[in-house]
């Protein structure tokens, strides 16, 4: 479904990704794990068009993503839940969800998608007229995921969904990811919480200093000595 081929990217003169190649198949959940500053967020931003890569190729279902204007990438079925959620704090929950359905194709299905999101997160229905900035951390994460789902994407990019949340809430977020997956959505998830994420995804890549160091099925990585020592603390 999504293919990255030798993508290099960065900010100004700082290079964050050095020729990253990865692919995500339809229906899969794929994780990208690695330490802080490894380039995980940059990877997500390059895919969704927040920044443009310096070189390399990205395709989504055979369509050249880089040939599209950045704001049209969402129309290819890619929705990105950014790091730190990035809700519009002074819009209501519904206003945020409305922004998620900004594209013409999504506007047409607004009522239907809203119902879908409210089914998934009944809490959001209760809070629909509350300002997003006043939600709790977990609720904000729900709202951010809901906003991304409003565009009826095929591929969901999740950037550190557990960051800054209480352990109980982290648990809930990962259960949520499970549920979204089981609905047939393809998920690419970036996480520092390695143990948790490897339980949810089918496969994962290990990204370090802008390079893919390892990849494999979750079970394989969970068993691998390098991962165990470096990230699982055992």
């Amino acid at each position: 479904m999504l293919k990255l081929d030798a993508v290099a990217a960065g900010y100004g003169t700082f290079q964050a990704l050095f020729g990253t190649t990865l692919d995500v198949n339809a229906g899969e959940a794929v994780g990208v794990i690695g330490p802080n500053g490894a380039g995980k967020t940059t990877l997500m931003r390059v895919i969704s068009g927040m920044i443009r890569p310096w070189s390399g190729a990205i395709s989504m279902e055979g369509v050249d993503v880089l040939a599209e204007a950045p704001h049209r990438i969402i129309e290819l079925g890619i929705a990105h839940v950014p790091e730190n959620r990035r809700l519009f704090p002074r819009l209501t929950v519904e206003g945020n969800l409305r922004m998620g359905a900004f594209t013409p194709s999504a506007r047409a299905k607004f009522a239907h998608r809203l119902e879908f999101v409210f089914d998934l997160f009944p809490r959001m229905k209760e809070r629909r007229n509350q300002l997003a900035g006043t939600l709790s951390g977990g609720e904000q994460q729900m709202c951010a995921i809901g906003r991304a789902l409003m565009s009826d994407p095929k591929l969901l990019l999740l950037d550190e969904p557990s960051a800054g949340l209480a352990p109980v809430v982290v648990q809930q977020v990962f259960e949520l990811v499970q549920r979204i997956r089981s609905g047939g959505l393809t998920v690419l998830i970036v996480e520092q919480n390695v143990q948790q994420v490897l339980r949810v995804v089918d496969r994962a890549y290990l990204l370090e200093a802008g390079n893919i160091r390892a990849s494999g099925a979750s079970a394989e990585l969970l068993a691998s000595d390098t991962i165990k020592q470096a990230y699982l603390g055992v």
Binding site: S48, G49, M50, H80, P82, R86, M99, F102, T103, A106
Partner: peptide
């Protein structure tokens, strides 16, 4: 910055 993610030109 995130307007682009909403598909806003």
């Amino acid at each position: 910055q995130i307007m682009v993610l909403m598909g806003v030109d």
